[in-house]
Design a protein around this nucleic acid. Sequence first.
DNA 1: AGTGCGATTGACT
DNA 2: GTCAATCGCACTA
Length: 207
Amino acid sequence: MGGAHVLSPESRPPLSRSDLPTDTVALARYLIGKRVVRETAEGVVSGRIVETEAYVVGDAAGHGYRGMTQRNRSLFLERGHAYIYLAYGLSYMLNVSSEAPGIGTGVLIRALEPLEGLALMQRNRGVERLRDLTRGPGRLAQALGIDLGVDGLDLCQQGPLWLAHGDRDPGDIGVSTRIGITKDPDRPLRFYRRGSPFVSGPRALSP
DNA sequence: AGTGCGATTGACT
DNA sequence: GTCAATCGCACTA
């Protein structure tokens, strides 16, 4: 792994797939502090990941729990691919597929700290306040212009959307239960950067 | 073919 | 704090 990487925001080499932990929970934790980079004709937008959730094997709350369907097929790709879906008919969610091909698990990206392309994010979101740009999974997808068009993309390869190394230490990582689910609500599978104002929902306890 | 329900958000009491 | 919006999907009949 790249350990003490210190990179300027303009330097954004993609993560290598071999860097990604194979285990879903380990991947969710690993992704805190890494960056999501979005490149379109409008410009480049990026943010530091400050909150994730793991949806693991045998998890009734996971979209892959009941097997592969037309909607969730990207979740069954090898780790490091984008799985996008529409929640509540109005918000797109960005997930990173995890584990081996055919497993159907992943990590939901729940919040970013905006780094590059602030003006474009503000335009995409229709709001000014920095804290309202990418706090929450639906908000960050809108800020980055993410929809079904990027579903299935390889996030370990530079293109319209990819994952890049962090530009600083991931910080102190907190753990809590997942937000907004009803099926298996008590498992400690949410990870977040402690103290970040860009984290959504309750800051919750536990180490 | 019909129906219930979300891995949310924004507006409002 | 509460609550409606909104639609694709999975499940029942």
